[in-house]
Amino acid sequence: MILKKIKEASLIGRSGSRFPVHDKWESFLKNGGRGYLICNAAEGEPGAFKDKFLLKNEIDRVFEGIDVVNNFFQIEDTFFYVKKKYYKLFKAELLERSKKRGVKIKLKEDRYVAGEETAAISSIEGKRADPKGKPPYPTGIGLWGKPTIVHNLETFYAISEIAKDNYNGERFFCITGDVSREGVFKLKEELSIKEVLQKTGNYPDFEFLVQAGGGAGGIFISEMNIDQPCNGLAVIEVYKKNDFDKNKKMIEISNFLMYGNCDKCTPCREGIYRINEMLKKGFDEKIFNELLSVLEKSSYCPLGKNASKVFKSLISVDEN
């Protein structure tokens, strides 16, 4: 039985939040095992392009994964939630496969936060793509109040591999930045950042630092500390240390988040705005730390919480 196989494979969801797939499924079962399924192909993270890669090269595996879930659970409707740009690129392929299965396609709003699972649910419900609070989790109360499983597109690929006993614990890494071989690479997920760079022929011959986990949500790690696995999204961006301008990077990220957030909660809407402002106009460490603290501890959804982590890692990247 597929659930048992998934549990044995310890499959972790590929969205970056590192949630075990079998936990999601068990929770869904506990809530009746009937409801909706969402394939999340929103891929809004800067530096991430593995969903695009999979749509181009492995689209059938993805849909096979969707079939596996549909065969196991009583799924009323499956939604394919996809970034507009990707939809345009792969329209024919997507339509052909989704029509056959009655999968409904929903285009994602062009906002970073719209890729978050509860925001995706709001969007499919026809509302603004704003995140909802958790708990309740979607597997209990999801789309239109019914239990819902939301998986990243790559997770469906992995599910299909597991169903066919092909899975060997590999995931897709995006390597980008100051590297010689930018691209998507399929490697064992437990590999350290260092090993990933080495195995892909991307280990720099200059002093560098990396951002691991995505261009907006990933943390900054110095060269000395890359002997750790890539947590979160498997995106590794390499920066030449000598060319790296911390302040510029921080402005770039805060700009991205300012445009990408939903503006709903005070710390994220106002806090990131004030961080952006002070980076341009004059830094005040005390206020900066106050703002990071409210982002981390009191923002509504993971976006603000994570932003604080990113900023903190960037500030202290030389020390760690």
Binding site: G133, K264, C265, T266, P267, K297, S298, S299, Y300
Partner: peptide, 19 residues
């Protein structure tokens, strides 16, 4: 709407607060 983030409290000694 949960937007103002003034009514934050701590639950089960978690590191972050909830509304």
């Amino acid at each position: 709407t949960g937007s103002c983030r003034i009514c934050v409290v701590r639950i089960n000694n978690e590191n972050r607060c909830r509304s």
